[in-house]
């Protein structure tokens, strides 16, 4: 076997091993994810059971949504894509005020004062709604203020699920790029370029066939080993 061929075989073996590792990783993570999502659904169903069957539905989604999770993608020189997550955590100080906003005792007002105050409130209203829209709301609040613990558990499961999905994608993508080796033009040798453009399996099959033919010939005709180029 020529040294060039040997080098190719070694590289192919390394690629095949890497591929198998990634496949295993992928399977493992998939199982974990599926479990997490199942857990999430179960908790959601339990929440729905205690809140009423129409409670946790698409109709209750907020009219304004801001994503709390973003991902950064980057393509590496090797053809693999790298993903990074960014999760914006809601500050604990963002407590929504519920109920009367006035502090202390309310004073009774006469009619004219009351009308003036109403006018004031009317003018102030658009401002306050605007500020409310800009701040991020926990999606949990779409479904009510005092939601069951189960819904919170569902949220945690799905959050965890997302993170794991992102990790999963890392392996998925690395794996996808291996189908065809894209940098065919970069190869100096035409043989290498041609070989690299093939998939791993076909090459291995060729090697295997060569080896089999060689050993069969040896056995059948008792010939000395034939060098394969």
């Amino acid at each position: 076997m020529s040294p060039e061929m040997k080098d190719i075989s070694l590289r192919l073996d390394a690629k095949l091993l890497q591929f198998m590792d990634q496949l295993e990783d992928l399977e493992e993570k998939r199982e974990k994810i599926n479990l997490l999502i199942e857990q999430g659904w179960f908790s959601m169903s339990k929440a729905r059971y205690s809140m009423g069957h129409k409670q946790v539905s698409a109709l209750q989604y907020a009219s304004e949504m801001e994503p709390l999770v973003r991902i950064h993608t980057r393509k590496l020189d090797t053809g693999e894509a790298e993903f990074q997550t960014e999760r914006r955590e809601l500050g604990s100080d963002e407590v929504e005020n519920i109920g009367a906003k006035e502090e202390g005792l309310r004073r009774r007002m006469n009619k004219s004062q009351n009308a003036a105050k109403e006018n004031e409130e009317m003018t102030e209203e658009p401002k306050s709604t605007k500020t409310r829209h800009t701040q991020h709301q926990d999606p949990l609040k779409w479904f009510g203020i005092l939601v069951p613990q189960n819904l919170k558990q569902a949220q945690t499961a799905f959050k965890q699920g997302e993170m794991d999905y992102l990790l999963l994608i890392l392996s998925v993508l690395a794996f996808r790029e291996q189908k065809c080796f894209p940098d065919r033009s970069r190869e100096k040798s035409p043989l290498l370029g041609w070989l690299r453009s093939f998939t791993i399996f076909h090459l291995h099959l060729r090697h295997l066939a060569d080896a089999l033919i060689q050993s069969d010939l040896q056995r059948a005709f008792k010939l000395p080993s034939i060098p394969v180029h």
């Binding site: 999502i37 999430g40 659904w41 959601m44 946790v56 539905s57 698409a58 989604y61 949504m65 801001e66 994503p67 709390l68 999770v69 999760r87 999606p139 949990l140 819904l151 569902a154 949220q155 499961a157 799905f158 959050k159 699920g161 997302e162």
Partner: peptide, 10 residues
């Protein structure tokens, strides 16, 4: 609903 709860919605 699950994924939106997790905060992906926009």
């Amino acid at each position: 609903t699950g994924f939106l709860l997790g905060g992906v919605g926009e």
